[in-house]
Design a protein around this nucleic acid. Structure first.
Lengths: 240, 240
DNA sequence: CCAAAAGTGTTAGATGTACACCCATGG
DNA sequence: CCATGGGTGTACATCTAACACTTTTGG
């Protein structure tokens, strides 16, 4: 049992969940992050990461999914916890007149498929994809949270098959290459080397089906083979 | 402003910080983790990770340091946030009669120098190092938290110079090798290859000073050169 | 036929792995 | 003088990075 004396000095928290939601616009080769225009105090009218406060009986991860569902309709995604920001005074609502309640933010990082994702947006609640080079000043410490998420995205991409959560069932090796390029930058690897490295790993199945995109030789459609990948799980392997 | 309606469904939290504190007994080549015998409800008399509830005005990291300071006297350490466990019902204190307060745990992972660390322990508050192969059933979800910390320790060791936070100022290459062996296991690498790889990286300075440990050729004492390491920061480099 | 896109092959240099071997000391 | 621990060298396989080349399509 907690003694009365100790109880007095313990902080009371509301726990928020903030999401850094990425997607890759494969048409335009752009890396995007989802921002919302705040309608509530504090930071009204400023852009921020989509977030919510955790409800009774709700797990952190469930809260993270709830925000996602409120802002976008999406089928395919990858989601993982990022970091917890919990210093005092990170939220202006912690002013003395709010009875000393602290606001802690557990951030999540998500990657969703851009193509079949619909934004749920109206005049009141603006939701929009931002190119990551053009992110404005955000509410709270959200710029910091974003940076953290961006780093995680890049490193995760290198040793984890999260791309396949987001690419369509069937894709060409060039689709995959473009995807990596868009996130990791122009000069992360030569195409032909990328190709052979990945194929050697053995978890990409050539379906034999060919697809033509305008001029040029038709490309094979590949499929990610989760079973063939399983043994490589956690093993350090790199696409760089 | 949060409407009254919403306020009703928001969960109220107490936030705990739980530490997975590792050390390497370099005499006996053992990897150890710090456990405490609980004296409070719940899980009285069971072993658990050292933890505490966050106080008013206290940051998460400060709370993590406070636990450390309460349990052990230590000068050198590495500390980083691990993960946040926050599902409902992870803490039995969340029973209905506690007015619906949730208990969330932000876990931290620490590595401390075993040699000059003194346990603060008495009959009431038992604190003790456990070999990681012999960890008993722990309170709460602490076994899970430990596993998470153990994984992090191993992967962090491979691409991050955390070992030098904990090794003495001057050390032999064999000291370093043993340190890695103890954490990563017998067969992580050949000694001579480990040697040459590290020396090639250029951030270990040979002081020229020799030290003799019983029979055999005396070994050179090396020093970690933080400046020479700086450019490698975040670059993926591996000791495996 | 030719430009464009897909896919294959080649080569030099760097790295990793598994050893064998030499060096300096205490007993 | 030899066991012990420290330290160097080597040989082979593998991986990397850069780039040249072939194949198959649309226009």
């Amino acid at each position: 049992m907690i003694s009365e004396e100790n109880k007095l000095v313990l902080a009371d928290f509301k726990v928020g969940v903030d999401n850094v939601i990425f997607s890759v616009d494969t048409q335009q080769n752009r890396l995007l992050v989802l921002l919302i225009k705040r309608t509530d105090h504090p930071f009204v009218n400023q852009w921020g990461l989509p977030g919510t406060l955790v409800r009774k009986g709700e797990s952190l991860e469930k809260a993270a999914h709830r925000i996602l569902a409120e802002k976008i309709r999406v089928d395919n995604l990858y989601l993982e916890q990022l970091y917890t920001f919990g210093g005092p005074n990170r939220d202006p609502r912690e002013s003395p007149d709010s009875y000393g309640v602290r606001y802690l933010s557990v951030s999540y990082f998500a990657l969703v498929r851009f193509e079949d994702t619909q934004l749920i947006s109206d005049n009141l609640h603006k939701t929009s994809w931002y190119m990551i080079e053009r992110i404005p000043q955000l509410a709270f410490d959200h710029n910091e949270i974003f940076s953290y998420g961006y780093q995680r995205l890049r490193s995760k991409l290198e040793y984890s098959p999260i791309a396949f959560n987001v690419l369509p069932e069937l894709f060409t090796l060039n689709d995959l290459y473009q995807f990596y390029m868009t996130i990791l930058g122009e000069n992360f690897a030569d195409y032909s080397n990328f190709r052979s490295r990945l194929l050697k790993l053995g978890f990409l199945l050539d379906t034999g089906v060919k697809v033509s995109r305008g001029a040029g030789r038709p490309a094979s459609l590949y499929r990610f083979d989760a079973e063939a990948f399983a043994p490589l799980k956690d093993k350090p392997f790199v696409f760089v």
